[in-house]
Amino acid sequence: MEQQQETVLAFKGLTRRFGGVVALNEFDMELTNGQIVGLIGPNGSGKTTSFNVLTGIYEANGGSIEFLGQDITSWPAQKVYEAGVARTFQRSRLCLELSIFDNIMIGAHKRLNHGFMFNVFKRKALQQQIKENYEEARKLLTIFDPELADKMFEPVGSLRMIDRRRIEICRALISHPRLLLLDEPSAGMTHEETRELMDDILEVREMIDGLSIILVEHEMGMIERVTDKCIVLNFGQKICEGAYREVASNKLVQEAYLGGE
């Protein structure tokens, strides 16, 4: 029970400005081991920006980010990934002309041997590594969709939206992250597909011990179903935090979404 309380991620006064626009303003949040947090708010409220600052794509203008006890505020994207943060993107960012296997293997980067000598001259060892990773990728993808797992060497560009999302999530999970950032996984999908995808994600969480997830989402059904806690942003500021029911009945939140008088 004690392990459950371990803090995985903490934002303290996180601020990011673009010129005069304050995209994130003194944002505080905390995430514990195994928790699923929903990050919601109207368009432009700073949800994706917080992901981008966390993963090192943008620099923070103020405040700090602590991940597993380390201050990672100014780390480059590569180092944040190495530390155990994996993400998906709002507009799916897969390499469409590469195969499913290639795309998933990009996620496994930190476990692969990238030495020049190893890759060019030690072909036997390399092929061994390729086959081992293939097995793992296939196993992971089978959880999401066994049919997809049979198409490992087909280009991602030929697949449906939901399959692309699945692959993007597999690419993130294959890195064995401690923290998974999902940026609007339901965008461009039907309700049915969204539900399917959410089932898959919950199943994966059961399997990976201590995986925490931050979910940015507009689809409130999904938020209600899977999150332990919700944080509402508006104009870069946190306006409310709590269980979905509390948040949904909060007056400030309703105003933010529907507009106040």
Binding site: Q78, E82, A86, R93, C95, L96, I106, H109
Partner: peptide, 26 residues
């Protein structure tokens, strides 16, 4: 040999999407 190795995969990832590549440690 380069194409059929992790190096070739890294090359492709850099060409196709630098931001996503950086987020995956490349």
């Amino acid at each position: 040999r380069i194409e059929r190795s992790w190096i070739g995969l890294n090359f492709d990832a850099v060409r196709l999407d630098e931001t996503a590549a950086a987020c995956y440690g490349i």
